[in-house]
Simulated assay, not measured.
Amino acid sequence: MFRKIDDSISVSPQISVEDVRAAADQGFTMIINNRPEQEEPGQPAGDDIREAARAAGLAYVAIPIGHGGFSANQVDAMRDALANAGGPVLAFCRSGTRSTFVWALAKGADGEDPELLARKAAGAGYDISPIKPLLGAR
């Protein structure tokens, strides 16, 4: 279920409270929630995921991203979260795509090669070509 992009981050479709323990057992140190609350009926509440993360000794950051796109604030928040994670991160949204996109935008803003980012994303099953022209544009 968790798709490894590289040693620093994996992404996932929506996780459950039970998945938090699996994330901790796999060595993740932080969970990043990129999903807006109540995006669809029956979605686990971010507060429940946050509490499960804390109980499992994981840091938790919410950077909700709707379907309207990405703001500079969201990219900066992702950069900060990744820089302060202290170990591997698990980021999730509905399908993992928005998490992959905001990761790529954050890494691109840090100067990482867009081609390398695209290869890493593709290795996890995600196509970042829609945002590739934006990588490193800051």
Rank of each mutant, 00 (worst) to 15 (best):
R3N: 14
K4Q: 14
I5W: 07
I5T: 10
D6P: 01
D6S: 12
S8I: 11
S8G: 11
P13T: 11
Q14L: 05
Q14I: 01
E18G: 10
D19F: 02
A22F: 08
A22Y: 08
A23I: 00
A24E: 04
A24Y: 04
A24P: 02
Q26E: 13
F28L: 02
T29F: 08
I31L: 08
N33P: 00
N33E: 05
N34V: 07
P36V: 00
E37G: 13
E37V: 02
Q38Y: 13
E39Q: 05
G42P: 11
G46Y: 07
I49Y: 06
R50L: 08
R50Q: 12
E51Y: 03
R54F: 05
A55L: 12
A55E: 14
A56Q: 01
A56K: 04
L58S: 07
A59W: 01
Y60H: 12
I63E: 10
P64S: 12
G68F: 11
F70P: 09
F70I: 04
S71Y: 00
S71F: 01
V75S: 05
M78P: 07
R79K: 15
D80E: 15
L82R: 07
L82S: 06
A83P: 08
A83V: 03
N84R: 15
A85W: 05
A85F: 05
G87F: 10
P88R: 15
V89A: 02
V89H: 05
V89Y: 06
A91H: 01
C93Q: 08
C93F: 04
R94D: 08
S95L: 09
S95T: 15
T97L: 13
T97E: 10
R98S: 11
S99L: 05
S99R: 00
T100Q: 02
T100N: 02
F101G: 06
F101H: 13
V102H: 05
W103Q: 10
A104C: 11
A104H: 11
A106V: 01
K107I: 04
K107C: 08
G108F: 00
A109F: 02
A109V: 03
D110K: 14
G111W: 10
E112Y: 03
E112A: 08
D113R: 00
D113M: 10
P114V: 13
L116I: 13
L117E: 03
A118L: 03
R119C: 02
R119M: 12
K120V: 05
A121H: 07
A121W: 06
G123Y: 07
G125Q: 06
Y126K: 07
D127N: 09
I128C: 09
S129Y: 05
I131P: 02
K132V: 07
P133W: 00
L134P: 01
L134I: 09
G136Y: 07
G136L: 11
G136C: 06
G136M: 10
G136H: 09
A137D: 13
